[in-house]
Amino acid sequence: MAGVLVVCEHLSGGFADITFEMLGLASSLQVGEVSAVAFGSMADRSGELGAASTVISAGCSDDFNPEEYAAAAKSAVETTSPDLVLVASTSMGYDIANPLAATLGIPLIAYCTGIEPEEGAFVCTSSLYGGKMGVTSTVPGPAVVMMLSGAHNADDGRIEGSPGVSDLGAVDTPGRVRFKQLIEPDQGDVDITQSGVLVAIGRGIGGKDDIEVAEELADLLDADMACSRPLVDAGWMPKSRQVGKSGMRVKPSLYIALGISGAPEHIEGMKDSATIIAINSDENAPIFDVADYGMAEDLFDVCEELIEELE
């Protein structure tokens, strides 16, 4: 059987948006039947997966387990023999898609933002080099493609329905990876998902002591501070201020990005902001692709002048 198999992702009892993004994309490709594999009790919610004609119920624990979910995905591929398998380009997806393709011996394309079917093959565009290059690959089916979040509209795949459910049964794994617990993020002093205006700083800020300038600007604009991941890893900013794939998803009315390059992992967390202003000395920085307004200048020059003006 040809068609597309979507590997559903869920967290905290709900399907992730990327699941619906992939379902919408799968239907739009028109390369045969769309099926979806849902893990654990999520298969009971097949009514939400109406974009698929079949839901494969994988008898796994509800909590993600790399070994178990990869084995279940493999068994789902073996029963449906799809031409194309879509997996989320997420933390969980990394541990499903790679072993899946490697053990099945089929090609894998990562960081994909778009797919076009072409004479039995798929032309996939990947966002590589931190979003600085769009790379087109041609891959024959069957293939596994990892889809970046946010490249498609989740609403296109959010269709109620009553797909047929087929039971995959329990999966057998060596049990070398055991889930222990899920840890909720520290709330931190400010919930940046609720902020109206955010001043977000990236590695372009240079050093810990230079953060002051941005803080001063944030004060004057009545904004909260946010940041990209490297600043958290360096211990300069608390994790609760991190925006992006492994941080918070924010939607302020204004997001001012200072010295942030615009890697796909960052953009994922801020692209839905109502207005984005980016200041970056590199005129080719990918952040300018999602920004509404851009300034290709030194952030310190701009901040200092702006602070003076606002005062």
Binding site: L11, N65, K180, I183, P185, S246, G247
Partner: peptide
């Protein structure tokens, strides 16, 4: 690490 600052602990 998962999204939204959520973290899962595994024994391997």
């Amino acid at each position: 690490e998962y999204s939204g600052g959520m973290v899962a602990e595994f024994e391997v």
